[in-house]
Structure formats: C-alpha cells, structure tokens
Amino acid sequence: MRPFIAAVFIAITSANAALADFITVASTTSTQNSGLYDQILPQFTAQTGIEVRVVAVGTGQAIRIAQNGDADVLLVHHRASEDAFVADGYAKQRFDVMYNDFILVGPKIDFAPKSLDELLNYFADTGDHIFISRGDDSGTHKRERELWEKYAQTMPTGDWYREIGSGMGATLNMASAVNGFTLTDRGTWLSFGNKGDLGIIWQQDRDLRNPYGVMVVDSDRFPHVKSELAMQFVQWLISDVGQTAIGNVRVAGKQLFCPNANQQSEQEQTPDDACPAQ
C-alpha cells in the first residue's frame, strides 16, 4: 500500500509546474475575453519575473473568491461592491486603473429614442422586444439592474425579459440567436465574433461609464496572500508604463480601455472626454 500512496502523491504533485514567483488575480470575464491580459501581462512578467495567473469570472464571483482568500489581487468593475470590499476589511485601498463603457446592443428597431430613459421604458412598456439579462450578479448585471431601477423604477417582468445566469459571451450568443437586446461592455463587444444582426443601439451615456478598480487582498486577514508581489503588480498597473500598456491594447485597431489611474477626481471625467474608446 505504501508504494501506491507514494505513487499517487508523486502523480498529484508532479502535475504542478515548478513554482516560480506568481500571483493569482481574480478578475472579470470582460477583461479576459477582450484580450487585455494577453496583451499587457507579458510586459509585466518580462520586467519583473512575476507570473500572473488570472481567474476570470463574473465580478460577484471574483469578489467571493477574493473574500475566501483564494486570490492575491482583485480587479473588477462595480464601484459600490469594491468600496464595500475595502470597508469590510478585505483590502486596505482601492485604486482606479482604467475605464471603458457599457453599450446597449440589439437588432435594428423602428424607434429612435432620445435618451436611455426613453429606450428602457419603451422596452418595458411594449414588451415586444426580447431583452437578455446576465442574471449572474456580475458587474454588468449589477449595472443593468441599477439602470432599470433608476429609469423604470422597478425590475422588469414578463416573457420578454430573460435572465439567463450566464457570462457576457453566452449572453451575447443568445441575444444574437434570438435577436434580443442586452447590455454589454464595449471591450467584450468589440472582440465578440458572433454578432449576427446585432448592432449598437445606445452608447456614450454618462450612466454607461464602466470604471475598473484594483485592490490587493489584505494580508492581515489572509497571511498567505503574497502582498509584496501583488503590490508590485498593482503599482505597475497604475504606473506610467502600465497605464501606457493598458491604453495601447487594441482589438481590430480600436482602443479598448482608457487608463485613468492618474486622474484626480472621477467626477471631472465625462464619458465623451479625450479617450477614443468613448
């Protein structure tokens, strides 16, 4: 029995590659699917020798992973949840890192809304158009709920409103298949390969700003967190080098994210300022 146990032990542990310096980042599918990490992480690793392992899930799940102590860094996009994460003592500080925007996509309609307010109420009142909701507690889903609350004063109900509990990609695939409407981040949309008849219906709205924040999980709370390596990564992201790298990320020639770590106040930025992604 003993050789067998030894064999099993070797089989299990040898499957893990030699452990270099690495950190684990809990982040969102929107950042991974858009190719952000593929483009910036090799630069960071080349400069520091630190390998970055990204677990990309919805913002809600990413926060839970970080709250369990299973990640060193959290990079997500829902300001209220991020502030709560810091307030609850899971991180010492939140840093602005970049932003892009949400857009509303769908098939062409015979209706020219003058505002997001009008458009959402049009969906809710007619009930003729299928709206696909993420329904997975992600950053995009949280934002979508906030928009319904703000403009329709209530969450939609009815057959036309479908909560599918899936990632952005699966949601876009479904919207494309049934010619439905959905809210998506611009990065995922630009790099999405199955658009079908969908196009952008509403964009460049102050309510559709999509800021990302980054936090190091507090090592006072979880002693195993590699806070030094993690802090090195965060410092790099918000440094000029990192910010330039983020600003240079392109999909099909289009800029995906606007770096904003160095801007003082979020209020001063408007959705249609100098950044081309807007």
């Binding site: 499957a15 590659a17 677990v55 369990n68 102590g69 299973d70």
Partner: peptide, 20 residues
C-alpha cells in the same frame, strides 16, 4: 479554498485540484 479545511495546502487553481 483558503477558507476551507484543506486551504493550507494551497492547491486551488492548480492541476492537482483538477486531478482530485
């Protein structure tokens, strides 16, 4: 998970975890 009973092993997000 780090918050789970075997968290100290640090095996989450490794091939070992997938094998298990």
């Amino acid at each position: 998970s780090r918050s789970g009973p075997l968290g100290e092993w640090g095996l989450l997000y490794t091939p070992s975890a997938m094998i298990i």
